[in-house]
């Protein structure tokens, strides 16, 4: 059963990865990419990393890819123009692909030849027996590696502030600013008047 599930997920990851590159419509590409993420999460469940699998779906599929899809849908993409740059960039892409392939072959080859030993974590980093992998990750992240974790947090904060500073524009002149509290405090009796006109008289304001 596990073997069947593995080959199913793996085949879907590869197929949707290929379709991401091959499909002509960019929106289709993003959707195939999402399918690839989803099946990769399935593979993670199979190796027992259910926490990472759920995070992959929540963060990448649920948030990042939605924004990605959002942007691609809103862009008015000219397909002919996109295809025009293909031959120019092809050597660069090919070079990246060759380098990645070489690295993979080297890594897996070294491992196969017994030159590379994958260590098992010991001491503080050793997995807690009988605990789920949420507890294990938590114990490592907030115990042993707490300073690295804080550092990562600060880097993200700086990146966030940077993004806000770069995109923030003061637009005071273009629009009258709303005062939400004032709007909420407004009551019907100060906004409307009830006039009782005589029949056939009409209203003068």
């Amino acid at each position: 059963m596990t073997v069947f599930a593995f080959y199913m997920f793996a085949a879907f990851v590869i197929a949707s990865g290929a379709m991401t590159i091959l499909s002509r419509n960019p929106v289709h590409s993003v959707l195939w990419l999402i399918l690839a993420f989803f099946n990769a999460a399935g593979l993670m469940v199979l190796v027992g990393a259910e926490f990472l699998a759920m995070l992959l779906i929540v963060v990448y599929v649920g948030a990042v890819a939605v924004l990605f899809l959002f942007v691609v849908m809103m862009l008015n993409i000219d397909f002919a123009e996109m295809r025009a740059g293909f031959m120019k960039n092809a050597p660069l892409g090919l070079a990246v692909a060759v380098i990645l392939l070489a690295e993979l072959v080297l890594g897996i080859g070294a491992y196969r030849a017994g030159r590379l030993e994958l260590g098992t974590p010991t001491g503080d980093a050793a997995p807690i027996a009988g605990a789920s992998n949420i507890e294990n990750i938590g114990a490592l992240l907030y115990g042993k590696y707490v300073f690295l974790f804080e550092a990562a947090g600060i880097i993200l904060l700086v990146a966030m502030i940077g993004a806000i500073v770069l995109t923030h524009r003061e637009r005071r002149a273009t629009r009258g600013h709303q005062n939400i509290a004032k709007q909420n405090a407004r009551r019907p009796d100060e906004a409307t008047v009830n006039v009782k006109p005589e029949y056939g008289q009409g209203v003068e304001l």
Partner: peptide, 17 residues
């Protein structure tokens, strides 16, 4: 499953698609 609540969160985030 022991990540039940995360699973619910993950699946409900797919609803937007």
């Amino acid at each position: 499953i022991n990540v039940g609540l995360l699973y619910v969160l993950a699946i409900s985030s797919l609803g937007v698609y």
